[in-house]
């Protein structure tokens, strides 16, 4: 069976006053039905722009200059704006980090969900509103009839995110993109929202792309993971592989720099945290060679000369680094 979504060599660029930058630079990935792909990376690595490229929602000054995005057998990049609009919110949907800014403050939340339903399904306003109450119930909002009459500001952050999810789920999408869905929420509410997303995924056999900077969320909620750095995927595999045996020095650095080791066991608090020196390079003046070069403890001449490409080191475990074999030897 072909994957639900397949992206090949996607390049999304932005034209700014300081020149053109490649926010997404040659990304390829695939997601199967019923699977959660976690995309992890630090701010500015292009993970949000990747999601917006899939949704056909990139800002005005951006454009996709290369690649294919095949969803349910069709190349989204060859479609007209109207054809994409029919898919967006219907076959694929997205939820965002800050539900307060994604909801319209002057409409009741029930009406906002009904609007999506009316747009994609041939229902009367009354039926659509009734259905929106049912959707609110499905995402675990207590007293959905009453809450449907509320305005966004009357709801808590967690409830607003549930409304966003209800809206995204209103037309039974086959793909849900969740961009930092819990970053603005407290840790107990975060756990509830992640549980809700995985429950809905199981129930509807839906695929989820979960974008986050939090490795813990990836470990808990995703089956596959892609690590992004400066616009590129530097490592991808199933979650267990990446956490047990990270191949790329950046992935290793990220996991090692967590304040409590991945086991959560008796780590020594007096010890220094391992750090990744320096900071992410500016996309405006990228040097040739590997983008992680200046922060990498294993960098050598080859890394400065040529940019590494994704290579398969184990079954389904890909990494873009020239020195993976040397690093692995050193580790064992």
């Amino acid at each position: 069976m072909p994957p639900l979504l397949e992206i090949k060599n996607l390049i999304t660029v932005f034209d700014t006053t300081r020149g053109r930058i490649k926010a997404v630079d040659g990304v390829s990935l695939s997601v199967n039905t019923g699977e959660t792909l976690g995309i992890v990376g630090e701010s500015g690595c292009g993970k949000t722009m990747l999601a917006l490229s899939i949704m056909g929602l990139i800002p005005q000054n951006g454009s996709i200059i290369n690649g294919e995005i095949t969803f349910l057998g069709n190349d989204l990049l060859k479609m007209s704006a109207n054809e994409i609009r029919a898919k967006r919110g219907n076959e694929m949907a997205m939820i965002f980090q800050e539900p307060m800014t994604s909801l319209n403050p002057v409409f009741r939340v029930g009406e906002q969900i009904a609007e999506v339903i009316k747009l994609h399904q041939n229902l009367s306003a009354k039926d659509a509103f009734a259905l929106s109450i049912k959707k609110l119930q499905e995402v675990g909002i207590p007293q959905p009839e009453r809450r449907a009459q509320d305005y966004p500001h009357q709801l808590s952050g967690g409830m607003r995110q549930r409304v966003m999810i209800a809206m995204a789920m209103s037309c039974h999408p086959q793909l849900l993109l969740a961009d930092e869905p819990t970053t603005a929420l407290d840790v107990t509410i975060q756990a509830q929202i992640l549980d809700l997303i995985s429950m809905l995924k199981e129930k509807n056999n839906m695929a989820v792309i979960l974008i986050t900077h939090d490795l813990g969320i990836i470990a808990q909620a995703a089956e596959k993971v892609a690590v992004m750095y400066a616009g590129k995927i530097v490592e991808s595999s199933n979650v267990e592989e990446t956490f047990a045996d990270p191949l790329h020095p950046y992935t290793r650095g990220l996991i090692d720099s967590l304040p409590v080791g991945c086991t959560g066991g008796n780590e020594d608090r007096d010890k220094y945290l391992k750090t990744i020196p320096g900071s992410v390079p500016s996309l405006y003046d990228l040097k040739p060679g590997c983008r992680f070069l200046e922060r990498c403890p294993y960098a050598d001449n080859k890394c400065a000369g040529r940019e590494p490409i994704l290579e398969e080191f184990g079954p389904g475990h890909w990494a873009a680094c020239w020195n993976v074999r040397n690093i692995q030897k050193e580790k064992h």
Binding site: V187, D214, G216, Q220, C262, G264
Partner: peptide
């Protein structure tokens, strides 16, 4: 709180 904290162990 502790239980809600996502563990880094898949």
């Amino acid at each position: 709180l502790l239980s809600a904290l996502p563990s880094c162990d898949p």
